[in-house]
Design a protein around this nucleic acid. Structure first.
Length: 489
RNA sequence: CGGGGUGUAGCGCAGCUUGGCUAGCGCGCUUCGUUCGGGACGAAGAGGUCGCAGGUUCGAAUCCUGUCACCCCGACCA
């Protein structure tokens, strides 16, 4: 039984944790840093998988599966890669009752094990492009963990592709970035900024890393997905070559890209409120909860019948409404819980639409509908209810995105100089400024302000474009680009 | 690894400063009855090696020593 949620909005981490635990999305596991995903949480992941998998396949990518264990030597083949990942690897040294000849690393990402196979699969330019994706679990032994956002083991999708030319690889990298951006905004209703990571933030082993960055309600940034142009770095290490049409042996150009269960955390921190979870309809496994008011014995049968009929009518209407999902309706016939209790529970769980059907409504030929995010009650004639539900689901999906976008835009600022930035960063938000990316300068900014360059945004999108000017931090002129600075998760 | 905090019933906590009788409270759970349009009420019940180990004492949840675990903040990262 869910207890009343304790609003602890002054402490965003606690608030977030309350939502996760009380909406029964996840639990702490017996192993520190790992997470047990409960059915409520997993159904969100299933919705993400279903939709994103379709989008990925539409680009021509096919699913496959590679092993959990990676020989230690594979990881060491790409110098930058091993340096980046070695500290957070879990390593199996014993198995079958004895010490292993070669230790096995539990995959922190699969570039190496996949390249060991790609090297065999790719022979000719006719084998290219090779477009592979896998849904898998990973282990990264981080120092600090957070439910959904950074757990020791997590679920993700990782795509790995090989191309004949650098141009094709770059095109694929950008294509998948766009897939992520569209997915994030259309399905999670989470607006993101697509951009390029600076060298100090890029993936270990990549030529370039692109990312999508979202703003949470506490105005901190969350990296929600990445797409890497790996160039031939791994191809060199694994000798992944093909014979081109010009008769020459060439190294393939590769990409890799992924999003994880972190998206669930981001979605929660984007939409939820002190009453609990708020689920965008496209992620909900139940869209409509009908609560029949069954108190009076003489009207009970009539109310239940009306509720069942309404549920059927909504399902029917949903099927022809053009909504990109099957509208799922539940009728709560549990007589041991009072209606009020049910209302609070459905709010906690984030069910998008709640409908009350009671004897007084039936007399007037109406029902009471409540949208989770705005919470105002609406009296709707029974006959109009199915259409109204579909319209509500559709507008809720849109409104959540717009609300989050408005929040982000209202907290995105231009800054002119470093002093101004240092002052304003205390209030949180995104800060856009001309910047000349440089490892040491970025380290200094992080040290002094706890903020990092989240990305160098692509395109103009909504962003206020700073006048071309001197680098915000160093004051140097020339070669500056727009950068977004923020504190992040 | 550094800083802070917490371990007492399934969950949330009080009690500890200043040791004392049978360790309390709220929620939840069980049974019965009345309820039911925003978290119902009454009655009766079940549930505890007070994180663990050692010490001081006539007597320890309480004092001392050690130890373990977890949470939050930071460093690392998706």
């Amino acid at each position: 039984m869910a207890e009343k949620i304790t609003p602890r909005s002054q402490d965003f981490s606690q608030w977030y944790q309350d939502i996760v635990l009380q909406a029964k999305l996840a639990d702490y596991s017996p192993v520190k840093g790992c997470m047990v995903i409960r059915p409520n949480g997993y159904s969100i992941w299933e919705a993400i998988q279903r939709d994103l998998d379709r989008r990925i396949k539409e680009t021509g990518v096919r699913n496959a599966y590679f092993p959990l264990f990676i020989p230690e030597s594979f990881l060491k083949k790409e110098a930058e890669h091993v340096e980046g990942f070695a500290p957070e690897c879990a390593v199996v040294t014993h198995a079958g009752g004895k010490k292993l000849e070669e230790a096995l690393v539990v995959r922190p990402t699969s570039e190496t094990i996949i390249n060991s196979m790609f090297a065999k699969w790719v022979q000719s330019y006719r084998d290219l492009p090779l477009l592979i994706n896998q849904w898998a679990n990973l282990v990264r032994w981080e120092m600090r963990t957070r439910l959904f956002l950074r757990t020791t083991e997590f679920l993700w999708q990782e795509g790995h592709t090989c191309h004949a030319t650098p141009e094709e690889a770059e095109q694929e990298t950008r294509l998948m970035l766009q897939v992520y951006k569209d997915f994030s905004e259309e399905v999670l209703a989470m607006p993101v900024i697509a951009g390029l990571k600076t060298d100090s933030e890029k993936f270990a082993g990549a030529l370039r890393t692109y990312c999508i960055e979202a703003m949470m309600q506490d105005k901190k940034a969350l990296q929600a997905g990445t797409s890497h142009n790996l160039a031939s770095n791994f191809a060199k290490a694994f000798d992944t070559k093909f014979l081109d049409s010009d008769g020459k042996q060439k190294l393939v150009h590769q990409t890799s890209w992924g999003v994880s269960t972190r998206l669930i955390g981001g979605m929660i921190m984007t939409h939820s409120d002190d009453k609990g979870l708020v689920l965008p309809p496209r992620l909900a496994s139940t869209h409509v909860a009908i609560v029949p008011i069954m108190a009076k014995a003489e009207t009970k049968a009539q109310v239940l019948e009306a509720a069942d009929k309404l549920a059927a009518a909504i399902r029917e209407k949903g099927a022809v409404s053009g909504l990109p999902y099957t509208v799922s309706v539940s009728v709560d016939k549990d007589e041991t819980k009072q209606p009020g209790w049910k209302f609070f529970e459905y709010e906690m769980l984030g069910i998008p639409v709640r409908i009350e059907v009671g004897p007084r409504d039936l007399e007037k030929g109406q029902v009471v509908m409540t949208r989770r995010d705005i919470g105002t009650k609406e009296f709707v004639p029974l006959a109009d209810a199915p259409a109204r539900v579909c319209a509500m689901l559709s507008s809720m999906q849109k409104d959540l995105l717009e609300k989050a976008r408005a929040h982000r835009n209202a907290n995105t600022f231009r800054v002119e100089n470093y002093e101004e930035f240092k002052e304003k960063i205390e209030g949180g938000g995104f800060f856009i400024a001309p910047f000349c990316p440089d490892k040491e300068v970025e380290a200094k900014v992080k040290e002094e302000t706890k903020a990092t360059v989240r990305c160098l945004p692509l395109g103009d999108d909504f962003l206020p474009i700073p006048e071309s000017g001197p680098c915000m931090v160093t004051g140097r002129k020339g070669n500056n680009v727009r950068a977004i600075f923020a504190r992040s998760y």
